[in-house]
Nucleic acid binder design. Structure first.
Length: 480
RNA sequence: GCUCCCAUCGUCUAGCCCGGUCUAGGACAUCGCCUUUUCACGGCGGUAACAGGGGUUCGAAUCCCCUUGGGAGUACCA
């Protein structure tokens, strides 16, 4: 049987990091098994759902390269529609069938009555279990009469009195004891079905074979198991992936800061790096590789390598993963991305060779794409660097003023736009041989004279990238 | 409260299912050292963990129980 998995977001906000991770796992599993990845929109909570968010979430998924095979925009007639709000008739039909079979019933209970039951249960130290009179089949006739008069009851599922067992692919065997949940609502009094009900019907009707989702659904699963049973449907395999937590070890949420995918997208993080990092949070590569693309792991991706415990979301490691992906990228691709950044006019105007050398040099220092323009400005275009203590220290050495004046003379003689490495080497040789300076005073001195800094990338690569006009201005400023 | 889940370096994790090869491995971060200077590069190295207690066993990070700690769920939200 071919694998069918799904990601089922609620369009109630931006795509969340945690959602992106479960979507990614589903996507990878589909790719690994040559299965189908379905996108379903769970918008039964009309008040919170918003079509705009649906679009934004799909955009973010696309950006991450998590592309669905079926969904509202790519319907397979056999399974459409893919929005729960468009499937109301289906749910209604199933709910009515359950009532006919005596597996569910109409419930006119008021909020107050429900509240009283909950309090009683809490006082007795057990889970709240529905005990209203409508549970009794004897009241079915009365219910029908009230409905005919225009009243709209909720529909409640009759929870079987027995324990349920789930063989979860990441948690192992989970036993839900008898009485863990009481009769629960499957259709609200406003006629709209609730999550636990829709989810099961859709997964069943859409032939979903594996449900990979967050651990926050683990307790829900017992309700879903009951419905599968009532429907006489085959239950899919479940894999409840551990949650992502923030630094306070609480479930990751908005208050932990940047938890929406679009924030990273706006900051121009590399989508592959994002996926790579997210994948690593709770899943491990069989050979302990930690830098990879989706295509590198589809062959080895399996449900057996999930960690059962929660993982802390850590920006530091994401930063490192992003920098590793930058190093891995080829220069041409990098140049394209850099030119899309703001304030890259100078960069864009340079020759292909210059750009290539520049990117080759700077890519090992950049953690983010946005670092490139910053590095170009700081390292190459800054003609008035701040005189740091380290710079002053170097200029206090007796050899440094001589080096500075020599370099200054040489640079002022240059007419080309850029100097090449050989010219720089000539200056170095002169200082070394004719002035008798070597080692630290040599390199540090020449660096200070040309850049005003005590550290930075290799001079023999940096200086040929620096316009001589900038060098001239910079030297003038440094002399003051 | 109740139910479920979880527990290896500060963090992500390998190992755990199928006990001995684990004086517990890797990665991030951190610290130190090395390099014709410097480094935000690279190389080398260091600090740093099996939550605690009982079992079972010749032997336990690995199996069982308890305690503690953490998380999630307890809706006519998803």
């Amino acid at each position: 049987m071919t694998v069918r998995v799904r990601f089922a977001p609620s369009p109630t906000g931006y795509l969340h990091i945690g959602g992106a991770r479960t979507a990614l796992y589903n996507y990878l599993y589909a790719k690994a098994t040559a299965g189908t990845f379905v996108l379903r929109i769970e918008d039964t909570d009309l008040e919170r759902s918003n079509a705009e968010y649906e679009k934004l979430q799909i955009d973010d998924l696309k950006w991450l390269g998590i592309i669905h095979d079926e969904g509202p925009d790519k319907p397979n007639p056999k399974y459409a529609p893919y929005r729960q709000s468009e499937r109301a008739e289906i749910y209604k039909k199933y709910a009515l069938t359950l009532i006919e079979k005596g597996l569910a019933y109409y419930d006119f209970c008021t909020e107050e009555e429900l509240e009283a039951m909950k309090e009683k249960a809490a006082a007795e130290g057990r889970d709240p279990v529905y005990e209203g009179k409508w549970k009794d089949p004897a009241f079915h006739k009365e219910a029908l009469e009230r409905i005919s008069k225009g009243e709209t009851p909720a529909i409640r599922f009759r929870a079987p009195k027995k324990a349920y067992t789930l063989e979860d692919r990441v948690k192992g065997r989970v036993v839900y004891p008898e009485g863990m949940v009481g009769d629960f609502v499957i259709v609200r009094s406003n006629g709209l079905p609730v999550y636990n009900f829709c989810c099961v019907i859709d997964d069943h009707l859409m032939d979903i074979t594996h449900v990979i989702r967050g651990e926050d659904h683990l307790n829900n699963t017992v309700r879903q198991l009951m419905i599968y049973e009532a429907l006489g449907a085959k239950t899919p395999e479940f894999a409840h992936v551990s949650l992502l937590i923030g630094h306070d070890r609480q479930k990751l949420s908005k208050r932990h800061g940047a938890t929406s995918v679009n924030l990273y997208r706006n900051e121009h993080y590399l989508p592959e790096a994002m996926c790579n990092y997210l994948c690593l949070l709770g899943w491990s590569h069989p050979t302990e590789r930690d830098i990879f693309d989706k295509k590198d792991i589809v062959d080895v991706f399996s449900l057996d390598r999930f960690s059962a415990s929660a993982a802390m979301y850590d920006l530091e490691k994401l930063k490192w993963v992003n920098s590793e992906h930058i190093k891995k990228m080829d220069n041409a691709a990098l140049i394209l991305l850099i030119e899309k950044e703001p304030e890259t006019d100078f960069f864009t105007k340079q020759t292909a060779d210059w750009k290539n050398s520049c990117v080759e040099l700077l890519k090992k220092y950049a953690h983010f794409i946005t670092d490139f323009p910053k590095l170009v400005n700081e390292l190459i275009l800054n003609d008035d660097p701040e005189k740091t203590d380290a710079f002053k220290e170097i200029t206090s050495w007796e050899t440094t003023p001589k080096i500075m004046s020599f370099i200054s003379d040489e640079v002022s003689k240059v007419n080309e736009e850029f100097i090449n490495e050989a010219v720089l080497n000539g200056w170095m040789d002169y200082v070394k041989k004719e002035m008798g300076v070597k080692g630290k005073p040599l390199f540090q001195g020449v660096r200070a004279a040309l850049t005003g800094h005590d550290h930075g990338p290799d001079l023999k690569f940096l200086i040929p990238l620096t316009p001589v006009s900038v060098l001239k201005k910079r030297i003038t400023h440094l002399k003051k």
